[in-house]
Every structure is written in structure tokens, then in C-alpha cells.
Design a protein around this nucleic acid. Sequence first.
DNA 1: AAATTAAATTAGGTTTATCTAACTTTTATT
DNA 2: AATAAAAGTTAGATAAACCTAATTTAATTT
Lengths: 218, 218
Amino acid sequence: MLSFTEENYLKALLHITLEVEHKNEAGTNELASYLGVKPATATDMLKKLKDKKLISYEKYGKISLSDSGRNKAIEILRKHRLWETFLYEKLDFTWDEVHEVAEQLEHIQSQKLVDKLDKFLGFPEYDPHGDAIPNAKGELKPSFKKTLSEAEEGTTCRMVAVKDNTVSFLKYVSQLDLGINTHIQVLARQPYDGSMEILINDSKITVSQKFAENILIV
Amino acid sequence: MLSFTEENYLKALLHITLEVEHKNEAGTNELASYLGVKPATATDMLKKLKDKKLISYEKYGKISLSDSGRNKAIEILRKHRLWETFLYEKLDFTWDEVHEVAEQLEHIQSQKLVDKLDKFLGFPEYDPHGDAIPNAKGELKPSFKKTLSEAEEGTTCRMVAVKDNTVSFLKYVSQLDLGINTHIQVLARQPYDGSMEILINDSKITVSQKFAENILIV
DNA sequence: AAATTAAATTAGGTTTATCTAACTTTTATT
DNA sequence: AATAAAAGTTAGATAAACCTAATTTAATTT
Ligand SMILES: [Mn+2]
Ligand SMILES: [Mn+2]
Ligand SMILES: [Mn+2]
Ligand SMILES: [Mn+2]
């Protein structure tokens, strides 16, 4: 049985390696800064995770998840996203509130609970942020790649996910009346700073490039 | 914020002091054995809980919960019993499976989650074992006291709770077709060993005194 | 190629929660 | 009242997860 902390290291490695396509490895400092600990602390844990064959790693080398480490990490990701969906769908949490609580719930150990929760929610495929939920077999759909900042002027697209999961970003998105499945018409892009004029629900708004880079579309 | 472990000590103290009416105190060894740790370990924690003013305690003396310690313990008990109810009512867990998972879920920190869960469940008053769920104000109904072993021959009573929460007991109870709200007719009590002949759902069965002492009735 | 910078590790501590073994205090029994 | 037993505490260790400061190795830049 893995500790709470070990699980968080595995999950962090999965997130880092999933962030950039075909990257598949992480550095000690990168991992430490992701987790908010010092590199020395991460080094200690890396030795432990290596002993348990959850990662492959050599002194001064890059880190990558082993098959069993990856499976474990995906299980945790699955629980995280199922719990977020539960909180959002059944308990009326807003999408900016779910993550913090799911960070705790994802560590509850009970295979039966995960399976029953999945069934109770109707085997959802996406969480409230549009992220794919790994299924019971551990299969994870590739994440959406195209951002609003890449949309052509004059086209219409549909928002399918967010890249940034911070409370402040999510609150801002909701405030603009934007959400998963909102249709967005791209009116114009300002060449100077990449800000965009878009039409949603018949109202015209302007968003920054930074903002547009965090909205995923199809 | 209390640690997982500190919470478990408070909860244990509440359980011990609730077990016997007007007892309201516990000993170090009693507490340690309840928690499955050594008395020396408990002594260490007692100093810490005293410093935090969660218990009142003097060296070599008895332990009792302070008001704030009791409130904290009742919050945890509330969460425990709400989660048991959730697992039982919404996820189709059996009543012998819920406790183990609730032991983990009771430590999730989110006031909003507790309130929303309570509402989602329709503000239940009793958990799957017939134990009262403390309400949002921290009010806890007194527990049932009369056991089947005390029922008069020839009378009919209704099962309202169980005293023993172990998996083996609960499974045995279900197997006998007994559950919360089952009506029980007491046919006879064997003077030799206190075993009882009872009628439930038109079938006659015999249960031991030990068994009857763990069935609470009205 | 040498020097500089960045990345990672090691050494030595701290805190929390646990243990064993030895000791002290309290309670019960003769 | 003396003794024995039970209850509880203290001292000293260990393991997990973290830290700072110093050091080593690898990667970049001149
Ligand atoms: Mn999340
Ligand atoms: Mn999410
Ligand atoms: Mn329980
Ligand atoms: Mn219960």
C-alpha cells in the first residue's frame, strides 16, 4: 500500500509527463517545484519509488514512470476526476471548488468505492473541467490540444475543456458566461497583443491571449 | 487543523465515554487498547491534546474531552455516519462494508462537503446501523439502550440498531433476515444459557444470549 | 578547453507517530 | 500496613517526510 505522499509523487510525475506530448520524463527540480518541496526531499523519495519499482531512475538522470507506477498514477487520476464529477453533478459544487476537495478524496482506498461511484455517475467520460476520466481498465483518452488562441478569425468553435485549473481562472471563465460546450464565434484577433474579440451567447467580449491559450476547443 | 491521528484519538475518547452512560472519562490503557497502540504512545498524544486544550487530563489521572474536543469529535462522528449512509443508500454498499471506508472518509476536510452531503441524503437521522447522526448544530440524540436480551417473553419489539459493528456480526444478522425495523416476536428464553427463540418474518429461529445482547430494540 | 551556471545529491537536522524496556505511581489484596 | 498487581509515565529508538547548507556532477557558455 502506498502512502498519501508516494501517491502524490506518482500523480505529479504523470501530470508532468502528460503535459508535453512524448516527453515522458521529468527532472528532480521540476518534480520538486511541482510538488512545492525542496529538491533534496524529492531525491529521497525518488530512491524510495525506485526501490518499489514504480519509476525508472538513475542518479543524476531523468525520471520516468514504470508500468506499475503509471497504472497506479492513472488510478489516482481516475479517482480524482470521478470525485470532481460527483461533487459537481450531485452536490452542486461549482467547478472552481471541486479540485481542492478531490485532492483529498483521491486517496481513499477502496476499489469497490471507485467502481460504485463510477456506476452511480453513469460512467462519465469527462470531468467538470473537460478532462478525460480514465476508465476502469485504465485507458485514458488523449487530451484536447487546440486552444482558442489558435482558432481562425471568422470561425465558430465549441469550448471542450480548460487548461488552467486555478480558482481565479475558472471563476473568471464562469463570470464571462463561458463553460464546457459553449459555442464561441471568433470575430477578430488583435495583431498587437493577440487579444481576441469573441461572440458567446449573443454578447461580444474581449479576452487576452493568455486567457485564450487556456481555453481548449474543437 | 488537527492531524488524522489526533482526530482518531478524539473520536476514540468520544466512543469510550459514550459507551457507558455518565462515565465521561477514560484511562490511558483503555484508550491505547481501543486504538491498538501502546500506552506509552497514548501518553505522548495525551500531552499534545492537553496542550491544545482538547482534553482535560493530569498525570496519572483520568482523561475527559473538553468542550472543544467534544465538538470536534462529534463533527467527525457526524461525517462518519453521513458517509456510511451515503455508501449504503446511494452506492449500494452492504451495512457490513460501510464502516471501513467511512473510517477514511470521515477525515476529509471540507465543511461545504459535509453540509451538501447531508442535504443530498435528505438530512438523515440514523445511519445504516441505527446510530443517530449528529445534526449540523452538533446535537446528538441519546442512543438506544434496550437490548433484545432484555425483552419479555411473549412480547413483540422492533429492531432499531446494533451494538456490535463488526463485519462478522453484521453479516450474521443479515443472514438471519434481520435488519433495522424488523419486527421480532419473543417466543421463549432458555433459562440455562439465555438463548432465545424468536419469530421474524414468520420464521422461527434461535439466537444466543451474546447475539441478543447486541440487538437494540424498542 | 576552461569557466560558469544549473541540476542533483549528500550530510546532518527536525517533527510526528510509533515502539520497547525500565521505572514510578496508584489501586487492590492479603 | 505491607505487598503485589495494575496502570501509567519516561527514556531512548526508529521510520517517514520534510528542511538547510554544502558538495558533486552535468550542461552551457565563453
Ligand atoms: Mn482537479
Ligand atoms: Mn479536473
Ligand atoms: Mn462505523
Ligand atoms: Mn455506523
